[in-house]
Amino acid sequence: MIVRHELQPGEWIAEAQLSQALGVSRTPLREALKALAAERLVVLHPFRGATVTDLSLEQVEHLFETQAILEAQAARLAASRASAAEIAAFEKKHLRMLGYFTRGDRKPYFELNQELHRDLVAMSHNPVIIETHAVILTQVERARFAALDIGHRWEESVAQHEAILLALKARDIEHLGQLVGIHVIGTGQTVRVALRTLETDLPLAAVCSQSEPSPPAARNNKTRSMAGRGS
């Protein structure tokens, strides 16, 4: 609910109401809230409830900077360490994701997109990177979800995932790391644009036009072509 913005940043979560709505007692609910607090998704208010943590522009920038560093290095390791079977499974998921994109199925696309990011990190076979990445990924997920509201970013993201897959299959270590870093930082920039709309009350398209240029038509055409292959 928090990741998909069904509960908004700053929104109050009342223990009594949530306990009744979910049909659980307060004890397991409080344990669940403690787990969310450990992931920095909520702020606890003892015996009363919790509030959903805010997504500030500065926090989003720091989260995506950290994710970019971790995933870029994980991708470099994956290029040399991933098995052929792991890469084949990664490609299969990628093609499924293209199908969701073609049909405009936002939620399953988002979920599979996140799986691909986890899978790429897992292919590094570095348990420290994998564990550290998991700690921040839940916080990043709700910010990523906001970015999909911007149409041209969705197309751009698909094109970048296609390039990442090709570099992984070619085991091009440095190029793959660069592509992953650019992809994550680009998503972070788009999320900050989305958050600015909440602060300025400007239409999303207006903020986008002020913050970054639209992608070239050729890129959009290429993306649509790739998406067609994945349907």
Rank of each mutant, 00 (worst) to 15 (best):
H175T: 15
L116C: 07
E115Q: 11
R144D: 15
V158I: 15
L166W: 09
R118F: 01
A146D: 12
E115D: 10
T138D: 03
L165E: 00
I185D: 00
R103Q: 15
A84V: 15
L179W: 06
A170G: 04
P213D: 02
Q139I: 01
E111K: 12
H183S: 08
G99P: 04
T132Y: 00
E155F: 11
D119I: 07
G181Q: 01
H133E: 10
G99Q: 07
T187K: 02
I130V: 15
V140T: 12
K92I: 10
H117S: 14
L165F: 09
V184W: 02
I130W: 02
L204R: 03
D172Q: 04
C208M: 12
I164C: 02
H161I: 01
V135I: 13
S157P: 03
L168H: 07
S211K: 08
L204M: 10
I164W: 03
D105G: 01
L98A: 14
I173E: 00
F90A: 02
L120C: 09
S214F: 14
R192K: 14
Q160H: 12
Y109S: 04
A217I: 13
V135L: 13
L179K: 07
Q189V: 10
E155T: 07
G104P: 00
V180G: 05
Q210A: 13
L112T: 06
R103E: 15
W154H: 11
Y109I: 05
F145E: 01
Q139E: 13
E131M: 13
I87T: 03
L176M: 08
D119F: 06
H125Y: 02
L120P: 03
L166I: 02
R196F: 07
N126C: 10
Q139G: 11
G151Q: 10
Y100D: 13
E141W: 00
L148C: 10
Q160I: 03
F90N: 00
I130C: 08
N126T: 05
A147W: 01
T190I: 11
H117V: 05
G186P: 03
S83N: 07
A89M: 11
D201L: 15
A143V: 03
R118M: 08
V121I: 04
E86T: 05
L198F: 11
E174V: 06
P108V: 07
A122C: 02
F101P: 02
M123P: 02
R106M: 12
S83G: 14
A85G: 09
P108S: 07
D172A: 04
E111H: 10
Q189E: 15
E141T: 00
A143K: 04
S214C: 12
